[in-house]
Design a protein around this nucleic acid. Sequence first.
DNA 1: CCATTTGCAGACACAGTGTCCATGAACGTT
DNA 2: AACGTTCATGGACACTGTGTCTGCAAATGG
Lengths: 198, 198
Amino acid sequence: MAEDRRTKRTRRALHDALVALVLERGFTALTVEDIAERADVARATFYSHFQGKEDLFATVTADLLAELGARMRPAISGSAVGFTGKPLLELLRHAREERDRYRIVLRGEGDGKPLQLFLDTCAQATAEEFRLRAERNGVTPRIDADLLARVWVGEQVAVLRWWTADDVAPMPAEEVARMLLELAVRGRYWASGFDAPD
Amino acid sequence: MAEDRRTKRTRRALHDALVALVLERGFTALTVEDIAERADVARATFYSHFQGKEDLFATVTADLLAELGARMRPAISGSAVGFTGKPLLELLRHAREERDRYRIVLRGEGDGKPLQLFLDTCAQATAEEFRLRAERNGVTPRIDADLLARVWVGEQVAVLRWWTADDVAPMPAEEVARMLLELAVRGRYWASGFDAPD
DNA sequence: CCATTTGCAGACACAGTGTCCATGAACGTT
DNA sequence: AACGTTCATGGACACTGTGTCTGCAAATGG
């Protein structure tokens, strides 16, 4: 038997209500009653699906990460050397489509636990893929792999945060990707217009 | 008349109690009663100093930012071109001394509001100083200033997050600063051991 | 069409909030 | 050292939100 329509409807309604309300008021300010009411669901029903609002939020985050992972895998294997080409573009597109969910995660809502999960997952995957390529191509990284992965992911997440923020002018994803690629290749001193370090 | 000893004592006790408890249990899980008890302060007294735990947290963050600002100013003006030299080293040292406070901010505790404030303040100051130098030295940035500032700050914050985390091996601040400087100058492809982009 | 599952509304004890007040102690000043 | 002022205390208060449980109605899948 397939999943009951009602449960699917309820869960989806609660997901959407949470996202909308977190954007409006922030996670902490929300009550289970608020979420249930926005979703047109009885409070008792909420508790029959989730243990609390943290649980609901965790589910939303896990779903987002799973979708991202599914989209990134083919893009990564199709990219020869780094992550700043096709994979980044795929990330940006996903973020544009799921802008609201990205915003609440990147903002650090919920004591930053979803954000922490997001960062750790990305950083770990990056470091892994990174080591794999270094070995496959017979090159030796000139900088600690974990540090480099953190820098890599941190940079992209910082841009994501800036790019998905409320007040920023919508720059095309391709434009952002191009800039970051140049940054990765030429370094930040080049980008700032200078030629020499201090 | 100087400030009353008692108020200074209680405020400091509440500050410390908050930091310790957030590290132990996370901001959301805390009650005002918990914080007051840990600080050996009556609950009523808490409310005579702060409007709630968010207010207390905001004060802690503001203090941290103010201290950082005071330390960064001379380091920035003494550095010729970029931020990745002396200023970064100063940031790392401050983070090492105030490790606990940095950790709870960088983690995104409190729905990420303190983190947001931290990021925005740093990014704004960076972008400002960045434009100022470009004009003074007659160079033209090759990449959007705001984007570049976000990348710059995002990278350093990502490293800070990694460096101040619980489980990581303590790498010397000077070592971290050296790596980041090379990264900024030569770009990430160089760092990864490759020579060409994808 | 029926048995099962799900959603609903209302009730419950409980925990934490934010505010108030009377009392006594600690404080800075003279 | 004595002063008036300021601050901390502990208990009380109404109130909001939590988490769980009930009986009953409606939707669902077979």
